[in-house]
């Protein structure tokens, strides 16, 4: 590109041009090799194998089975739990992010950011045990609520059911929402509120004409990321359920461990590929929206 223009210059640059191909890749080689070997290759092989029958011939059979019972229910449940947990967490998370970012003193902001980070990431197994201790059958909170006349186990509730898992998921989804949505709030400039006021806009006018339109893409993006996070979550559900709630990640884990046997050896791979596709439907728009929003979020 630019080197084409400079070629006429010193002989030094001409020789640099000769080695253009090698030198332009060499420094990135370690990264590319490791990324290729530990990521691209496994995922490519996964996709390839998902089309293999037990006799190593090409087949769509794995995918056909993936959309029958009990796997189709697994997908439905996984999508449902991801969607609901993202939806329920998104609004309170966005509002919390707004008040913390616009009104909180900076020390509070930083310590909340840290706490949210721990909650959103440590998650998994410890979270599951914590909820067992809190609202399990003999849990402390269960007993306290019972004392006040609320028996959460009066109905069909249990931690291992859809509702139970949903509740535990919210515990990491809400902090995650605060984390991913805060940058959008931070990039709302004070000048915009003031300019709007100056031009005759009331608070409500400002929000509907400027504030909400600017935050909306980031809100959708955050929702999508929460969806992907809820959809892929494995550890919490694995610790809380005992095979009674069909969720795709658990089914894949079962097939991989050999705990569950299937007549098709590569069924788990096909399930994984479908999972990747569903996850991509959420994550790729997320990435695109983030990139677009970055245009006005820069400084």
């Amino acid at each position: 590109m630019t080197s084409n223009i400079k070629v006429e210059g010193a002989p030094l640059e001409r020789s640099a041009f000769r080695f253009f191909k090698v030198t332009s890749v060499l420094p990135a080689l370690p990264f590319l090799l490791i990324f290729g070997f530990f990521f691209i290759y496994p995922i490519t092989k996964l996709i390839y194998v998902s089309f293999m029958s037990n006799e190593n011939t090409f087949t769509f059979g794995n995918f056909q089975t993936a959309f029958t019972q009990p796997y189709s229910t697994g997908f439905v449940n996984s999508i449902k739990i991801a969607f609901l947990s993202a939806l329920i967490a998104a609004f309170p998370g966005a509002i919390a992010a707004y008040f913390i970012e616009t009104r909180g003193p900076s020390k509070l902001k930083r310590s909340l950011a840290m706490m949210n980070g721990v909650l959103a990431n440590t998650g998994g197994v410890p979270l599951a045990f914590m909820f067992m201790a809190a609202i399990g059958m003999q849990g402390t909170l269960t007993k306290v609520l019972k004392y006040f006349g609320i028996d959460i186990y009066a109905g069909t509730f249990s931690l291992g059911t859809f509702t139970g898992i949903l509740l535990v998921y919210l515990y990491f989804q809400l902090p995650l929402m605060v984390i991913v949505f805060s940058p959008a709030i931070m990039s709302l400039r004070r000048e915009w509120v003031e300019a709007a006021k100056n031009l005759g806009a009331s608070q409500i006018n400002y929000w509907f004409r400027v504030g909400f339109p600017l935050l909306f893409p980031s809100f959708i993006a955050s929702f999508l990321l929460l969806f992907a996070s809820g959809f892929s979550a494995y550890a919490t559900a694995n610790a809380l359920t005992v095979g009674n709630l069909p969720l795709t990640p658990l089914q894949i884990g079962g097939l991989l461990d050999g705990n569950v046997s299937a007549s098709q050896l590569n069924l788990g791979k096909a399930l994984s590929v479908v999972m990747i596709l569903i996850s991509a439907v959420a994550v790729i728009p997320y990435l695109i929206i983030q990139r677009k929003a970055a245009r006005w979020q820069r400084r």
Binding site: Y41, P42, F231, Y234
Partner: peptide, 14 residues
């Protein structure tokens, strides 16, 4: 984009 479960399967078979 890749759920960790799917990544684990890929790593194990490749």
């Amino acid at each position: 984009v890749i759920p960790v479960v799917a990544f684990a399967v890929g790593a194990q078979i490749s």
